Amino acid sequence: MNETPASTSARSSTWTLRETPVGPLLLAATDKGLVNVVFHADADTADRALTRLEGRLGSAPVRVDDAASPDAPAPHPALATAAAELDSYFRDELRVFTVPLDWSLSGGFNERVLRELFASVPFGVTAGYQDLADRVGEPGAARAVGAAMGSNPLPVVVPCHRVVESGGALGGFGGGRETKRALLALEGLLPQPLF
Rank of each mutant, 00 (worst) to 15 (best):
T20L: 06
P155I: 10
G107L: 00
L26A: 04
E85T: 08
D44G: 09
E187L: 09
S69D: 13
G108I: 10
V62Q: 15
A185I: 02
D87A: 15
L183P: 08
V157K: 03
G128Q: 13
P24I: 03
G128D: 04
G55Y: 07
R135Q: 12
T20D: 00
E138W: 10
A141D: 12
F97W: 05
P70V: 11
A80K: 11
A60M: 10
G171Q: 05
W15P: 02
L25S: 06
R95Y: 00
G146W: 11
G167V: 02
E116C: 13
G171K: 08
E178N: 11
L189P: 05
F97V: 01
R56L: 13
Y89C: 07
G128H: 09
A80C: 01
Y89F: 15
G55V: 12
K180I: 04
E165I: 00
A43T: 14
D134N: 15
L34C: 07
N2R: 14
E54L: 00
A144H: 10
R63E: 15
V156F: 02
S106R: 01
A82H: 11
F123M: 04
G23S: 11
L57Y: 07
L154T: 00
E165S: 04
L50G: 02
K180H: 03
L154M: 12
M1L: 14
V158F: 10
A80V: 14
E138Y: 12
A133M: 07
G150I: 03
V64C: 13
L183T: 01
T98Q: 09
N36Y: 04
E111T: 01
G33Y: 06
S151F: 05
V113I: 10
R135T: 06
A72K: 02
A147Q: 09
